[in-house]
């Protein structure tokens, strides 16, 4: 191999390494969330399924008119999920129980280490100091990887738009309220005080305090305290969370920790491969020059690296 070719290979390899450097993931240890982050505690034992939070959200976020009015109880027949037209929905569970049905409000849970944020290749998502996970729809390409990644199936996509479809989800009323220290519209409207707005750290204390004071009323778990690294929305429930449609199989590690195995491998490949394969090439070259009559067929090398 000519020296010039070798230098060229090195140069190209080096450029690729430099290029790939930017791909390294932020391998943060364990991020507990911003200290001043706000949150909402949902006490499902208090919720009566009036759906006024849905109506308030619709008005606050200027969402399109729903298909049926917010008084229509027929929507409880099926489980719903947040969409681009409704950032929050209320579902009914435990219909047949003598203690009466349990309602659960669903929306973006505003994770401390959001999967959507870490999966977005244009960095459209931001976790603000106030705890909200907001997004910049001006850069959204529409790959919908965040929807794949979200463990709570929160982001919706407005597939109907041909010219400007973007991902849409609850932003904790960041632009209009949270930024100014005011609670989100859904919390403010709730007639049952099922939703409590406050600092996330305080809400966790409050939730455990309620469980301690009335242990018969709740199962001893605050959903969202630890799930996928903790979320800004926290839930209390009278029955097992799995019965209310919560995913109880989620790990306490943030989603990104699953990806770190791969991200850690990237710099290794970038730095080792060029030398390894240029080296193999040199070895093969020498062999060719050394023994001219070598039989290539007996040397059935696997073509994979």
């Amino acid at each position: 191999m000519k020296r010039r070719n070798f230098l060229k290979a090195c140069l190209i390899g080096g450029t690729t390494i430099a290029l790939g450097k930017t791909n390294k993931g932020y391998a943060s240890g364990s991020f507990e969330g911003y200290p001043e982050a706000m949150g909402v505690l949902v006490d499902t034992t208090r919720c009566i399924g009036c759906r006024s939070c849905e109506a308030a959200c619709n008005k606050e976020q200027k969402l399109p008119e729903p298909d049926t009015s917010f008084d229509d109880p027929s929507v409880f027949e099926h489980d719903r999920r947040p969409t681009a037209k409704a950032y929050t929905v209320v579902n009914r569970y435990q219909k047949e129980q003598p203690s009466g049905p349990v309602y659960r409000k669903v929306q973006c849970n505003h994770c401390n280490e959001p999967a959507c944020l870490t999966s977005c290749f244009v960095n459209a998502y931001t976790k603000t100091q106030e705890g909200a996970v907001i997004y910049n729809s001006k850069v959204c390409v529409g790959c919908r990887n965040c929807m794949i990644a979200c463990p709570f199936n929160a982001p919706g996509y407005d597939y109907d738009s041909a010219t400007n479809p973007v991902v849409k989800k609850c932003i904790l009323c960041y632009d209009t309220r949270l930024k100014y220290g005011r609670p989100p519209a859904c919390v403010e409207i709730c007639p049952q005080e099922a939703l409590t707005f406050g600092h996330r750290a305080d809400l966790i204390k409050l939730a455990h305090e309620r469980i301690r004071a009335t242990p018969d009323r709740y199962v001893d778990h605050v959903y969202g305290e630890k799930e996928v690294g903790g979320t800004s929305w926290l839930y209390l429930a009278p029955v097992g969370f799995d019965k209310l449609g919560f995913d109880t199989t989620l790990s306490n590690d943030p989603i990104i920790s699953n990806v770190k195995d791969f991200l850690g491998m990237v710099p290794m490949v970038l730095s080792i491969w060029p030398a390894l394969f240029s080296g193999i090439h040199l070895l093969c070259k020498n062999q060719e020059h050394g023994e001219h009559g070598h039989d290539t067929d007996s040397n059935q090398e696997d073509t994979k690296p």
Binding site: K24, G25, F121, N123, I256
Partner: peptide, 14 residues
Amino acid sequence: VSFGPAAVLFLVAW
């Protein structure tokens, strides 16, 4: 325009 270097898809795109 906007870089999300922590994302696997960013690596795929590049």
